[in-house]
Amino acid sequence: MAADKPTKRKRKSPGTAADVGGAFLRQRSDPRKERRFENSSSVGAVLTMVGGSLAALALGAGVFGQWFRGDGTTPHPYALHLLGAGVAFAIAILLFGQWGSLPVRVGDAGVAVERGTEVERLGWHDVQGVLLGGGALTFRGAGMSIVIPLRSQPEAAARALAEARTRIPARVKEIDEKALPAPSDAAGQVLSLEPPQIAGLRCKSSDKLISFERDARLCGRCGELYHKDDVPRRCVTCDAPLLG
């Protein structure tokens, strides 16, 4: 009986598809999600709209009574009072009003705001600093910032800060852990993300051009981009373990 031929075992090279089982290493086609938060319709926002309408009515009536009365007589005796009230209302609304904010997205692709049909996005790996103050949570990147108002988007701010603590802890270590409440799992609409467009970008580790999307690997924590042949053991941006 002939002896079985020994089988050759292929040696896995660092960063190949066989290594995708690492703790945070992901392929481009792996599913990603985010949460979408609408601006909250609070009592303050309603009062702001009512106050703005009253200011407009008072200003309009005052202008008409002062200069555009059709009888050609002297201005209405209450015209100046209406003008003054309208100006006072307008200033108060501008200073203290609670205006609606843009829809906010938070998830695997970073933080984003919707401006009409466009989504302005800042990836976690591109965040250079996080600031909590002035009534907003602000994520700063190179040449852009994402601002989440605390009054109109409290759930979005809580979710964004909690995710930042997990994904880019070095950027939020100056912010008190109790500064915002824990996010609610019921808040926000869960959306599936399309695979990222990465052809033509460069590997963060080797600066090698990624010509084909199949050659790309992503850090599942901060989204940093690597070529499959140059994946480091730990992410150079967030220090997440990539290879086992």
Score class of each variant (00 low, 15 high):
A2C: 08
D4Q: 01
D4Y: 00
P6W: 01
K8H: 02
K10M: 06
K12A: 06
T16D: 09
G22A: 06
L25Q: 00
Q27H: 12
S29A: 13
P31Q: 14
R36K: 13
N39Y: 15
S41A: 14
S42L: 07
A45C: 15
A45I: 11
T48I: 06
M49P: 02
L54S: 07
L54E: 13
L57T: 04
L59V: 01
G62H: 03
G62P: 05
F64V: 13
F64T: 04
F64I: 11
G65R: 05
Q66E: 11
F68A: 02
F68E: 03
G70T: 15
G72H: 12
T73M: 13
H81P: 12
L83K: 01
A92T: 04
I93A: 10
L94A: 14
F96M: 09
G97F: 08
Q98E: 15
V104D: 11
V106K: 15
V106M: 07
A109E: 11
A109W: 07
G110N: 09
A112Y: 10
G116N: 12
V127T: 00
G133D: 13
T138Q: 13
T138H: 02
F139M: 14
R140W: 13
I146K: 06
I148H: 07
R151Q: 12
S152N: 02
E155L: 14
A156Y: 08
A157H: 05
L161C: 11
A164T: 01
A164I: 01
R165F: 08
R165P: 07
R165C: 01
A170I: 00
R171C: 00
R171D: 02
D176E: 10
D176F: 12
A182M: 10
S184N: 05
A186P: 10
A187K: 08
A187H: 00
A187C: 01
G188E: 01
E194V: 12
E194Y: 05
E194H: 08
P196D: 01
I198F: 04
S206C: 14
S206Y: 14
K208E: 15
L209S: 13
L209E: 12
F212S: 15
F212A: 15
L218H: 12
L218D: 03
L218F: 06
C222P: 02
L225E: 02
K228P: 12
D229Y: 12
D229W: 11
V236L: 00
C238R: 05
D239N: 04
P241C: 03
P241A: 04
